[in-house]
Amino acid sequence: MIPVAWSLMLSAALLCVGVFGLLVQRSALRVLVSVELVLNAANINFVAFANANGKADGIVFALFSIALAAAEAAVGLAILLHFYRHGRSVDVNKSTMLRW
């Protein structure tokens, strides 16, 4: 069995990659992918602790989290599509429509 610490390290690395993408990327689609990376890092934690505890509750939580990530991606892509129709661009630097 893989030790929990290794899973946590993998999760931390994935989280950092996601945070880096969130801070650097300018395309809204790539920002959305970075958010998914962060969510998947949390899922790895859920599954790792579920394996360590010997209970399935963590895996069920991960399933819920995956469903929530799908919902978030659907809404994000819809907003992205709307934004592209308005501005003909998906550059987040240009998304000043909702700024106070």
């Binding site: 069995m1 030790p3 929990v4 610490a5 579920a50 394996n51 360590a52 505890n53 010997g54 209970k55 399935a56 509750d57 963590g58 895996i59 069920v60 399933l63």
Partner: peptide, 20 residues
């Protein structure tokens, strides 16, 4: 500190469906 791992079968589909 090192996590004390418990024995169990969380990857079993039956336990997942029981929880779900």
């Amino acid at each position: 500190p090192a996590w004390i791992e418990q024995a169990g079968t969380p990857n079993d589909v039956e336990s997942i469906t029981d929880a779900l």
